[in-house]
Computed example of a mutant assay.
Amino acid sequence: AHIGKWHLGGGRDIGNAPWPTAYGFDHSFTTFEGLGPRVLVSDEERFLAEQSDELGEGPRFWELKTNLTGLYANMAVDFVAQHSDKPWFVNLWLNDMHDPWAPDNESLSDVMGKGNSSDDDRMLASLVKMDKALGRLFDRLDQMGEMDNTLVIVTSDNGPSSAQRHYKGGKVAPGSTENLRGRKWSLYEGGIRQPLILYWRGHTKAGHRDERTVGQGVDLLPTIARIVGAKRPAGIDGIDLSPVIGGRAIANRPDLYWAYGKEGAPKEPPQPAMERDQAPPFAIREGDWKLLAEAGGANPQLFDLASDPTEATDVAAGQPAIRDRLLGKLKAWMAKLTPSRC
């Protein structure tokens, strides 16, 4: 089942997108920018929900944003209860940490004044609220006897918000990147380096923290396939990260690539408000080396993440051999991308 945010068509991006069930899910329930059965947010960013409502394409109802995670968690429990006699998978995509934040009063009172601004307080309160909701979900699954054989994966998609409105009056944008350069909409580490939390009772090493393994979203499918004993689909990207569950770091992996937007696209994607966080739209990582470049491979930047994780010092000029090798790989990969259609 897929339950929660979808954002793969069905709103301001693509109006006639396939439902999540077209991608292999037996059951789906989503929100705006997703079609099929869905909930529409009645308060925050209502204009997006109204766009979704006009598309039709499935039953829908309205609800306050602050109530969505509880709704999704209850649906997840119901789905598991109905399928507990066989293996099940739930893709639970929450939207609490995406601004505008909508915490409840209890969570807001827990953190009031602990942030750097009122926006920061609301973000922190939303995190507290989400954490409590996940705790209740896991407790319920435990009561059902499901947690003894369930792998829980918690991760995210990008760095904290970097919209211009958060910097008004000299304020600091909510959320921390721990001094990493970049935020949301950036290919610097602060925009793409995310937590990956794995829990599997009797298998994961409690309290273990892996600072060596480099994983990416493309690794989740081959990892899950290996764990459940399914055949790895042919031609997919990614590696099996299952050794990490047992506390064994993965030292080497194939190169990683990123593209934020497309060459020749009629519309440029959003950029962080602060110039320091604005990164070139294409990148490659080979071991600890990371190279970023503009369209066509122009203006390459090279960083050694082992010694410079904050990407403060561009060493492209001083490491021409490494720069040219990575740039050649990146340009070859960029040439394989589907061209933009105006």
Rank of each mutant, 00 (worst) to 15 (best):
R46C: 03
Y72G: 02
P59F: 08
A49Q: 02
K65P: 03
L64G: 10
K65T: 02
E45F: 08
P59A: 09
T69F: 12
P59E: 10
K65S: 07
K86F: 04
A49E: 01
V39H: 02
L55I: 07
P87V: 06
R38C: 01
A81D: 11
R38K: 08
E33K: 09
P37C: 05
Q51T: 07
D78K: 14
F32P: 00
A76E: 01
N67I: 00
L71G: 01
T31Q: 07
A73G: 10
F79W: 13
N74L: 12
T30R: 03
N91A: 15
E45Y: 08
F29L: 07
V80Y: 10
G58V: 00
L35E: 01
D43A: 11
T30Q: 03
A81W: 03
G70S: 12
L40Q: 06
V39L: 14
M75A: 09
A49W: 00
F61G: 14
Q51D: 14
T30E: 02
S42E: 13
D78H: 09
T69I: 09
W62N: 04
D53F: 12
D53C: 09
V39I: 14
Q51F: 04
D78N: 13
L40S: 05
A73L: 14
F89A: 08
K86M: 05
G36C: 09
E33C: 04
D43N: 11
E50I: 13
R38M: 02
T69W: 08
S52F: 13
E45M: 10
S52C: 14
D85I: 02
L35R: 09
L48P: 01
F89T: 07
E54K: 15
Q82D: 13
D43Y: 10
N74C: 05
F47R: 05
F89S: 05
N91R: 04
T69H: 06
V39C: 07
Y72H: 13
L35D: 01
R60M: 12
L48K: 10
V80M: 11
F32D: 05
A49L: 08
S42G: 13
K86P: 02
